[in-house]
Every structure is written in C-alpha cells, then in structure tokens.
Nucleic acid binder design. Structure first.
Length: 795
RNA sequence: GGGCGAGUGGCGGAAUUGGUAUACGCGGCAGACUUAAAAUCUGCUUCCUUUACCGGAUUAUGGGUUCGAGUCCCAUCUCGCCCACCA
C-alpha cells in the first residue's frame, strides 16, 4: 500500500515542466490570447513570503484555467530590483547592489519553481539589468522630447546632518530616519513627469475600468478635480500688484472678508509694510521649516497680518491680507479669499484673530443647523444684485461677470501634482541627461544608451546631497556632439521602471526597441493583473505612460489593465502583520518541506477566504486542505473504482460551480465545492469518469497532484463542460411556509417542480400542514416555482 | 473631519436577481481500526428547552418596506482601510 507523497510527485512534475518548457507561449498565435500577470516582486533577501504565494497562486490558478480552456496564455515573471534596501545594504557592507540582487533573484526563481507556477521562464525580466533599463531611459527621453519630463525648483526634505535629500517616507516625525537630526526643507532643482497633462483622461476613464471600486475611488480622490474660478484681487495702494486666488465657491465672493497667503508665496516680501516685516519673516521661516507632520498635527490656526490690504472686486471692500500655514503653496495659487461665514477653516481663523464674518448664503430651513458655519447651497444675501438667487446659479453668474470685467475666469484645479521622479541615490536607473558648460540640459543621444551604472566602492551620498554617482569621474564625464558635458547624477524613481514592464514582457529580448508593436498589440492590454499594493502610485503611473505611448503611436490601446484583482494580505494567526522584526513570519518553503507540499500550500491560500480580503494564517486549517488532497489521492490510487455511474448529477453540478467560481475569482468556494464532491465520492465510490473530472477541476489549484492523476487515468487536461440536463435531480424538496415561517419540507417528483398548481395542492394536502391550517383562514398563497417554495398566508 | 467598506456559530467563512441561514474547512465530542498512539474512516456539533421528538430564538442594535429580509430603506453602535487644513 502506497500513500500520498507530495514532495516526490512535485519534484517529478517540476522537472518535467522545466525540461519541456511547458509554459512557453507563442507570440501572435491565432487562438484567443490571455495575458495575466501579478505585480512583479521586489526580490528581498528574505525570499518569498506567504503573501507572495497568495498573489502568485491566484494568477497561476487563472493561467492554468484559461490554458485548459484552450487559450494562448502568457504568464510571465520578473523582478523589480532597484530600490533602497539593496542600496542601504551596500552602504553598510560595501557589497555591490548588483551582487546582492543577483543572489536574491536566484533565490526567488528557485522558490517560485518549487511552487510549481506555470511561468514562461523565457520572458523573465529584471529592471536593474542594463538591457532593461536602457529602454527605461528611452522611455524617459520620449517624455522629455515632448516636454513631459522637465526640471523645476521644489522644496525637498534635507537632512543637515547627513547632508542628503530624503524621500518623504524617510522622514519620521520631522526627523531623519538614519541619524535622527531634525530635517528641513530645501529648495532644489528636481525632475518631474507631467502627469497632470493627462489628469482629465485619467479621471474620465476610471469609471469604465473593471477594477475594484475601492481602487477607483482612491484614484479619483487622488486626482481630485475641483471646478471653480480664479479671481484677481487688487492690492490697496500698490497699483501694479494683483493677487490671484482660486476658489470653488465664487458665489460667496461678497463674503470674502480677508485674504490668506501660503508662507511660501513669493509675493509676500513685496506686500509687507515695515511694521510687520520682522514678524512676517519670522513666521514664514518657521512655517516653511515645519514638517508636514507638524503642520498636520497642530490644527490650531496660526498666522500673521502683513499690514497690506486687498480690494474685494465685488464690493470694493478693503480686506486685510494675512499669511497662514493652513494655506498650501502647492495647490491652486497659494492664496485664498477667506469666507469665514461659509468655510470652516476660514471661520476658525476669523474667530481666533477677531476678523469680520459676513453671511452671504441663507441656509434653507431643511438643512441641519448644528454647524457653526454653513457650507452648503442656499439663497444669496448681502450680495447686491445677486440677492435672492440660488447660490448654485450665482456661481455661474459671478464668474461670467468677472470674465466680462477681466477680473477672473473659470478654472479647473487638481489635487494631483506632477510626479517628482529624481532621486539622489545610486541604486536606480540613471537619468539620461547631461549638462553643458552653461548648465543647460541635453538629452543623451539614443545611440549612446544605456547610460550604465558604474561599479563604485563607496555608496554613501556625496556632501553636496548628490548621489554617490557624483564621485565617479568616469561616469560624470561624457562627450556629446564633440562637446564635453557632465552627466546628471540623479537616478529615476523605481516607479518609472515598473511603468512599462507589462509591455516589455510581450517582447523581453528585443535589442532594437522597447517592444515590438505587433507583439505588444497582440498580447496587451493585460487581461488580468493581480496585486495587493500600489493602489494609486503604480496603478496610476502605468495608466499615464500607456496614454502617452498611445499618443506617440507605440501602443494601440489607452488603458493598460482590463481587469484588476486586488488581493488582501496574509497576517499572522493573531491577525497582526507578519514582519521580520516581530519574527512572526511564515516561510512558504518550510511549509512545503515539512511535508505539506506546494499543492497544499497553494490550495490552502486560495481556500483561506475571499481573495480580496485580509486573512490570518492558521497552522491547523492548512491540515484540512492537506487531508482533502490526500483524499483525492486515495480515491485515485488507493481505492477500488466502481462501475456504476452514481454521480452524474453531482459531477455536472461541480463542473458548473467550479467553472463559475473561477471566472468570478471566488477561489475559496470553488475549493469548497471540490471538497463536497470528494466527500460524495467517498460515500458512493468513484468511477473513472468521476476521477478524471476531479483531476481536471483540481489542476488550477493543485497542479502536481492533478497531473499525476491525469497521467495514471490516461486523460488530457481539457476543461470539462457541464450538461444542463444532468443538473436536474429526480426529486426536489418542496418548502412550505406559513406566514413566511418554514413548516414542512416535502420531497416532490421533479416533474411537478414547475407546476404551481400541483405544488400548492401538494403543500395543502400535507398532513402536518393540514393540521396547522385547521382553525385558520387562508388569506392568500404564494408559489415560487423557481425555488419550489409555497408560502401560505393565514389570519 | 471627509470618503469607502464591513459586522453571520467557539474560529476562518458560505448563502449568484429578496425565497430552505449557518455550505466547506478548523476546533470539539463520540465511534471504528489498533496492544496503544499517530494516521485514516464514520457520525454528531448555532443557541435555548428536552433523554429524544416537538417547539422557540437567531445574521451588531432599534425601526421600516414586503406574503417573505443576512440581502432593500432609515437611525444608532462597533471595527477596518484610505485621504486628511486641497479653499
């Protein structure tokens, strides 16, 4: 007597898949294509964790399912390798990130193979491979040529101790994450991608995407389109000075009783009078230095009067100009008209500094009156000719009047800012730019790509705050058109590398182009993309690049991802996040090697709960899945098959349920119905057909075991079809309710199932029901044939 | 503060357009096999009452619509996530 030995079976099939390149797909084949991918991993030194396994198992289940359904499936794999962990490790140890990355990739590949994923390994990519980032640089140059990659001065986090620029996430409570020094903001020249050029399209096309609503809403909020107006306010006693504000509520213009400028606003020095100068300067300096966190934490309004006045263009009123840090420099014009009667923030400010509050909207009686200031719609008052009209109408009318007077115009503003892409770091894709003697930027000619990262000894950032690349003379010096220039030493944000990899997968070894047009348009857009992170950043950036490259004629589609599956995390058994520092992580290879095998691990992670919700690891529950696979094995290899075909109906029901569930990504219930099927087969005994169907349906979840079964049964893996006629049972259970309460279940021949009259008669003739109705009056009877249910309403 | 989502047994969770609540799995209990244990197999397992049958209650709480509500509507409570002074 033999028994289920997953490790043995898995080794056998993994070897065979490797030898036959079982999952290599054909470009431009005639069959319908299916392109699936997970968000490619950052190969950390820890190796794959169970969260990866969940993510990859979902993609693998679908890939195998669609392959069994006859589609030309592409399921590639790659590594997102640039980034901070490898660089920090290099700074600490001096070991080159290139070397660490190679080790980690080798480990990831080995682990992925032990999980038996149906990957086309000929399409493996790695973003820090010069063959890859050559084309990331090419992408940058296309954006640069069209003016969508540009340089601008911007305030950056700066650590005065380490003399380096820090990313937002490297600032902890206003202090440097490495040395703990208080960070400050420094104005520096930075590279940006002009994602705002596509703001409207990015927003408008969200609704049509087959993506989770949660992600769609997050992207909408992130883009944050606001319709309003820009209005010019003259400055009293300064003829040539105007201050432009942005507002979404021009209808409240008559209620603007003061003006507030962001501390960063460059017009401030021009406005302040001598009495106020010192105080204003001090306020601005502290405010600018303050971290975002400090500004957020302390919602208590602060501010200072400039001594200057603006003129409200609507009524000619002289209103004081203040500076306060609750006004943001990066949004709108960095100046607001304050309407304290109808804006909570302005109201708080006015209360604190005793500024006038003028009500210009009468709140309707139906509105709740618990708020101190009313920000809804209503009837306009205190606004000259506009009085008595509805605020929504006045909004249009005032803007029209302003436009006529040349004092303002309609304006759409976005919360989204341009994408800051330069990083003062070594371990990233070099920006293919050089500067001439005058400091003018020049594109590196495409035939000089890639700009390769040089091997260096010291990875620590330079005193100047530039990356370690600045210390490499051989790197910085470059000749362009016979002129000696200095290379840009900033590298690209890692998100740039991942903004186009989905297209590189379609043509990963192309030496002449980033991708071949025919191939990319055959495979892409990606049909199903799966991941559990990057709701706005990466998933917005790929959409942006897709639209840009479509405009440039390199892609024939404008949205890169048709369907997005956003999977939940796997937490520790106590529900807390798994982490290296807590030591509560689960190593997938340990799980496999302790005897469960990859099939159990994969099936368990799909069974653990709905794929899109977080789940907690359970060392007990995984045993249940092992028992299930063991029972599948026993049915096939260790139990006598029966001749009779007792399970036609349940077999076809299972085919239907598993097929529907996989298409709807309900992996957990698909596994549950396979369990029910197996339980049934244990009761009745299984014949060859039962086992073949079981193996075929099991393959997307537990491919090794399923292949072993199919080989023994001498069957192929074609996905089975169900037959409607077998879904009918011989008898149905008639449910009888009295006043909606279940009172009886009666077995009825299925020929009566669609006959309302007979169902009603059978229900009312039932002895138990009869006795319960004896002293009652029947008001009416409802028969639902679809559910074979009768509800008798009595008095 | 704003937005979105979710509350179902001891636990993870099922219930596709309103129609048999608690599928499947874990855990627990009992039995079979075994000298014994593990493994495996079989059965029971929402709660209350009952030896059992019968009966009653139950999908966070309170109301509503309906012949019928886990599902729809209103209010309240709790939890989670995202954004957070965006004018």
């Amino acid at each position: 007597m033999s028994h289920y030995e997953p490790l043995k079976i898995e080794q056998k099939w993994q070897k065979r898949w490797e030898e036959t390149q079982a999952f290599a797909c054909k470009d431009l084949a005639k069959q319908p294509k299916m392109y699936l991918a997970e968000m490619f991993p950052y190969p950390s030194s820890i190796g794959l964790h169970v969260g990866h396994v969940r993510n990859f198992s979902i993609v693998d289940c679908l890939a195998r399912f669609y392959a069994q359904n006859g589609m030309n499936v592409m399921r590639p794999f790659g590594y997102d390798t640039f980034g901070l962990p490898a660089e920090n490790y290099a700074i600490k140890t001096g070991i080159a990130p290139q070397a660490v990355t190679k080790t980690n990739i080798d480990n990831f590949r080995k682990q992925a193979k032990r999980l038996g994923f149906a990957i086309d390994w000929s399409r493996e990519i790695n973003t820090s491979d010069p063959e890859y980032y050559k084309w990331t640089q090419w992408c940058f140059l296309q954006l640069y040529k069209k003016g969508l990659a540009y340089q601008a001065e911007s305030f950056q986090w700066w650590c005065p101790e380490d003399k380096t620029v820090l990313a937002n996430e490297q600032v902890e409570n206003g202090h440097c994450w490495r040395c703990g020094a208080e960070v400050e903001k420094k104005k520096m020249k930075q590279w940006f991608f002009k994602i705002t050029a596509y703001a409207d399209e990015l927003l408008d096309e969200i609704d049509a995407l087959d993506w989770p609503e949660k992600i769609k809403t997050m992207q909408k909020n992130w883009i944050g389109r606001s319709e309003g107006a820009e209005i010019d306010f003259a400055v009293a006693d300064q003829k040539d000075t105007k201050i432009r504000v942005f507002t979404t509520r021009p209808d409240t213009l008559f209620g603007a009783t003061f003006m507030v400028l962001a501390p960063e606003n460059t017009i401030i020095p021009k406005l302040v009078n001598d009495d106020a100068r010192e105080a204003v300067q001090a306020y601005c300096e502290t405010a600018i230095k303050k971290s975002e966190i400090e500004r957020q934490e302390n919602k208590e309004k602060t501010g200072v009067f400039t001594g200057a006045y603006a003129i409200n263009p609507a009524n000619g009123a002289k209103i004081p100009i203040w500076v306060a840090d609750y006004v943001l420099s990066g949004y709108g014009t960095g100046a607001v008209m304050a309407v304290p009667a109808h804006d909570q923030r302005d109201h708080d400010f006015a209360e604190k500094f005793d500024l006038p509050i003028v009500k210009v909207i009468e709140k309707p009686e139906t509105a709740k009156d618990d708020a101190l200031c009313y920000d809804g719609e209503g009837t306009i008052i205190n606004s000259a000719d506009f009085n008595g009209q509805d605020s929504a109408d006045v909004r249009e009318a005032i803007v029209a009047w302003l436009e006529q007077q040349g004092l303002g115009n309609k304006k759409v503003t976005y919360r989204m800012r341009d994408w800051l892409i330069s990083r003062q770091r070594y371990w990233g894709c070099p920006i293919p730019i050089a500067y001439d003697k005058n400091g003018k930027a020049h594109a590196i000619p495409e035939d000089q790509l890639p700009v390769t990262l040089p091997k260096i000894d010291d990875y620590k950032p330079d005193e100047s705050g530039r990356s370690a690349l600045a210390k490499s003379k051989e790197f910085t010096k470059v000749i362009i058109d016979g002129e000696e220039m200095t290379r840009e030493t900033d590298t690209l944000d890692g998100y740039a590398c991942s903004s186009w990899y989905l297209w590189r997968y379609t043509d990963p070894h192309n030496k002449k182009a980033a991708w071949d047009k025919k191939k990319v348009n055959y495979w892409a857009p990606t049909d199903i993309y799966c991941g559990g992170d990057h709701a706005v950043a990466h998933l917005l950036y790929v959409r942006f690049w897709c639209k840009f490259f479509a405009d440039e004629g390199y892609l024939d589609f404008r949205e890169p991802i048709k369907k997005l599956l956003y999977n939940g995390y796997i937490n520790a058994s106590d529900g807390k996040k798994m982490s290296k520092s807590k030591g509560n992580g689960i190593d997938p290879l340990d799980v496999i090697d302790q005897g469960y095998g990859a099939d159990t691990l994969r099936t368990y992670e799909l069974f653990i709960g709905p794929y899109n919700l977080d789940a907690s690891w359970s060392t007990e529950a995984i045993g249940g899945v092992y028992r299930f696979l063991n029972r599948c094995w026993t049915l096939c290899f260790d139990k006598k098959t029966v001749k009779a075909d007792a399970n036609i109906s349940v077999r076809h029901k299972t085919i239907k349920k598993v097929t529907d569930d996989i298409r709807r990504a309900n992996f957990n219930t698909a596994v549950a119905s396979l369990m029910e099927y197996v339980n049934q087969l244990f009761k009745t005994g299984a014949n060859r057909e039962d086992l073949i169907i079981l193996a075929k349906l099991l393959k997307p979840f537990a491919p090794h075991l399923a292949c072993e079964m199919l080989e023994t049964l001498q069957a192929d893996d074609t996905w089975p079809q169900f037959d409607e006629t077998y879904l009918q049972e011989e008898t149905v259970e008639l449910v009888v309710q009295i006043n909606g309460k279940l009172r009886a279940r009666i077995a009825v021949a299925s020929e009566h199932a669609n006959d309302a009259a007979s169902l009603e008669k059978i229900a009312k003739d039932d002895a138990k029901i009869k006795s319960m109705l004896a002293d009652k009056t029947i008001v009416k009877t409802i028969v639902v044939t679809k559910n074979h249910l009768v509800n008798i309403v009595v008095k």
